[in-house]
């Protein structure tokens, strides 16, 4: 089922330079997408358009068979959640539980049900011991986990991660990554769109969309994207380290096929 359909979508800010130029893709239910590209390739603009925070200039965009307009936007937003880049600037409540409650208040969830919901989703991201904590007592990774819990509490069908790990230290990055993996296992119907710089992370998703200067450079399954590895390198994007190792080994006449899992790769080389 197509949840989100984007067709020939274009967008520009005041200076009329196209940030997005005729972008088309569909988001299917239950899949994990990654959108990769350089700074200024239009990734974050795309996320804001999907969230209805910006209004498209040309083309069409629809979610859940609803066009993005003033009447539908509240309905569309109730299906889509987003985790932004900066942990501080999306922490709205003054404590962890207040922050998660913020979205619930907006959705008019009755007061009596809030505590249970908050507890359930803080447990899901492993933050149940921090309910009373204020944001300045938390690390970046913990704040992002709270943001994820806040999004989950609203029961969305799609979650967008807009470079959610890019401001975190390696520990926080791994933290969020593990949380996302766990989420996928627990909710197979949840659709994830991860906008990222992290190539390793992107190649673990079901589909990858590569943006370059506002245009779609490539899209497809990770294997398909890797067939164009040389093109990716040409526009300055990396490929996963293990894939690179495999390529170099192949060049030197050592036949290796595995590149997704380091242990299996080692086994294959040692054979």
């Amino acid at each position: 089922m197509n949840l989100i359909e984007v067709k020939d979508l274009s967008f520009y800010y005041e200076n009329e330079k196209y940030v997005l130029d005729k972008v088309s893709f569909v988001i299917e239910s239950g899949k994990y997408y990654s959108i990769i590209g350089h700074n200024g390739s239009g990734k974050s603009t795309l996320a804001k358009l999907l969230m209805g925070l910006l209004v498209k200039k040309e083309g069409s965009i629809s979610a859940f068979n609803l066009a993005y307009n003033r009447q539908n936007i509240e309905e569309i937003r109730s299906h889509i959640g987003i985790v932004f880049q900066n942990p501080d600037n999306q922490f709205i409540g003054s404590t962890v539980q207040d922050d998660i409650a913020f979205g619930l208040e907006n959705r008019r969830v009755p007061h009596e049900e809030m505590n249970d919901i908050i507890l359930k989703f803080t447990k899901e991201v492993g933050m149940e011991d921090y309910l009373e904590k204020e944001p300045e007592m938390l690390s970046g990774g913990q704040k992002q986990r709270v943001a994820i819990a806040g999004v989950l509490a609203l029961n969305p069908d799609v979650i967008i991660f807009d470079e959610a790990t890019s401001m975190l230290d390696p520990v926080g990055r791994k933290d969020i990554h593990d949380t996302i993996v766990k989420l996928r296992e627990k909710n197979p119907n949840l659709t994830l769109i991860s906008i990222t710089h992290d190539i390793e992370e992107a190649f673990q998703s079901d589909e990858i969309i590569v943006l370059e200067h506002g245009k779609i450079f490539a899209k497809g399954k990770p294997e398909e994207i890797l067939e164009k590895a040389s093109d990716l390198k040409r526009i300055g994007l990396n490929v996963p380290f293990l894939y690179e190792v495999k390529e170099e080994l192949n060049k030197r006449g050592i036949k290796v096929n595995e590149y997704k899992d380091i242990q299996r790769m080692v086994d294959e080389i040692c054979k």
Binding site: M51, G81, I92
Partner: peptide, 11 residues
């Protein structure tokens, strides 16, 4: 950014 985050969460 805060305004975006608030709006995205249905405020």
């Amino acid at each position: 950014e805060l305004a975006d985050a608030m709006e995205a969460r249905g405020y």
